[in-house]
Design a protein around this nucleic acid. Structure first.
Lengths: 126, 126
DNA sequence: TTTGATGCAAACTTTTTGCAGCTAC
DNA sequence: GTAGCTGCAAAAAGTTTGCATCAAA
């Protein structure tokens, strides 16, 4: 664990936001201006590999990163791309997987909506 | 509907595979060698906008395209990225959304596994 | 004739990678 | 020392876009 990796990890896990690599890079550079973008990507990749972070792909937006905790769905705004955590009723998917004979290694559930901020904006904006 | 768009649409919907833009481009050019890559992307985008196709994003793989039918989850191989359709018990998510006060505009559920082909390969390959 | 789509190429965004030098055991 | 990591810069991968031309109503 280098200082760089620690900083990157702490930025992802400190706040509930699910930030993009670029946002993480910008925030990290406030504290460590010499940090290279490549290092951010490299460490995010390593942390995901190690199972400490989770990478979220959402349409028309760069990947976002979430702390890896108990699996949970995400609520994604279709307009601005912001992501929130949700908690899911325990054991919703497992029976389905078992029934299908799938050896489930993970899942990814996204619910889409238009967030209140964007819904407000839409009237004058679009 | 130009000939190009029709061809692109038919390639996506003709087979159960969920192909990437590049695969669609290659297949389309067998029938229309003058077709430009930009035209493929443009038309895929239009067809998604129009609600005729669905764009699937999966980690470490370019986007894949699926015919737009009744919403359904996808089974994704974590190794090779191949995607299969699943059918989901009706009304699994809606109660959850209602309970959370979300005005659901759509969802995206992916179940991950290692497909039989990749599981077979793993022994000698990794 | 006008509207919109095409082919082509260049540009853009996001992410990965090669390499030489640095750091910490 | 040496193993692994960094910063830098270049390149890759995927996708979008500007523009002149073409096709069709």
């Amino acid at each position: 664990m280098t200082r760089q990796r620690e900083l990157i990890y702490s930025i992802v896990t400190a706040a509930p936001e699910h930030r993009t690599a670029e946002e993480i890079y910008d925030l990290a550079r406030e504290q460590m201006p010499s940090l290279a973008r490549g290092t951010v990507y490299r460490n995010l990749g390593i942390l995901v590999e190690e199972g400490q972070l989770r990478r979220l792909e959402t349409p028309h937006s760069p990947a976002r990163y979430d702390r890896e905790s108990r699996p949970h769905p995400h609520l994604v705004c279709q307009q601005c791309g912001r992501v929130e955590d949700l908690t899911m009723p325990e054991g919703l998917l497992e029976p389905m997987a078992r029934q299908l004979g799938i050896d489930l290694t993970g899942y990814d559930l996204k619910l889409y909506h238009i967030c209140p901020a964007c819904r407000g904006m839409k009237k004058e904006d679009l």
